[in-house]
């Protein structure tokens, strides 16, 4: 269970959100909404410890994440705004190097790349792929990872309709197997996920709906 307690973040002397509280438990998906610059990405990064929050703490299964950073990171998958795909390496190599540093259920890169529709493109450098395909390489990791908490920053950007559907299917199977998902997106996801929680970031404080 992920628990955010009194999280406050400032950026350039501007308060993005103050005293934000929410809980995310197994089988739950939570969407963070808000206009551009509201602090959605900062919130995700603060939860992971990539951004130093000014106040508040993140509790993971009963203990603060700063006290058990390694244990927490072992169970988190993050897909950020920059998605750590080296453009000079091939999709295959990118997955290979990623899996050496991250917990995975298996190293079946071929089937992961097939899932995201990159069959036949495994061994060409990523810089010759389109923006959407580039993104699909990053998303192929979702079929390899075995972490519990997925933190995804705009996972649907540059992805076509069938790709979005595929991702939603993967999200659902992750949720049924006891996972949790925290994501930012401008799309309306209430149709696809019955149990969707939403956090709206506005001018100053997050309000939970």
């Amino acid at each position: 269970m992920l628990e955010v307690q009194g999280l406050t973040c400032f950026r350039q002397n501007r308060c993005l959100f103050a005293g934000l509280n929410f809980v995310l438990s197994e089988h739950q998906i939570c969407q963070i909404e808000g206009p551009n610059g509201a602090g959605k990405s900062t919130l995700l990064r603060a939860i992971l410890g990539l951004f130093r929050a000014d106040e508040g703490q993140i509790i993971w299964s009963g203990k603060s994440t700063t006290q058990q950073a390694e244990l927490f990171l072992q169970q988190v998958f993050f897909l950020g705004h920059k998605f750590a795909i080296n453009s000079d390496l091939t999709p295959w190599q990118n997955l290979e190097f990623w899996s050496a540093l991250n917990p995975t259920q298996n190293d079946d890169f071929a089937s992961a790349l097939t899932k995201v529709g990159l069959t036949g493109l495994e061994h060409i450098p990523c810089h010759s792929l389109s923006a959407g395909q580039h993104r699909r390489v990053a998303l192929a990791r979702l079929w390899l990872t075995n972490t519990k908490l997925w933190v995804l920053d705009e996972p649907f950007t540059a992805i076509d309709k069938s790709g979005v559907q595929l991702l939603q299917q993967r999200f659902n199977s992750h949720l049924t197997s006891g996972g949790m998902i925290l994501l930012t997106s401008h799309q309306d996801l209430s149709q696809e996920f019955a149990q969707l929680h939403t956090i709206k970031l506005t001018d100053n404080t997050g309000e939970i709906i």
Partner: peptide, 29 residues
């Protein structure tokens, strides 16, 4: 399909090796 408990063990040595190999491959390319 997805089992959240089983995981391939991560070894520091293989991580070190993989970064080293990655750099060599990048330089080669």
């Amino acid at each position: 399909m997805n089992n959240l408990s089983t995981s391939k063990p991560l070894s520091y040595w293989s991580a070190f090796k993989s970064i080293f190999i990655r750099e060599i491959k990048l330089a080669w390319q």
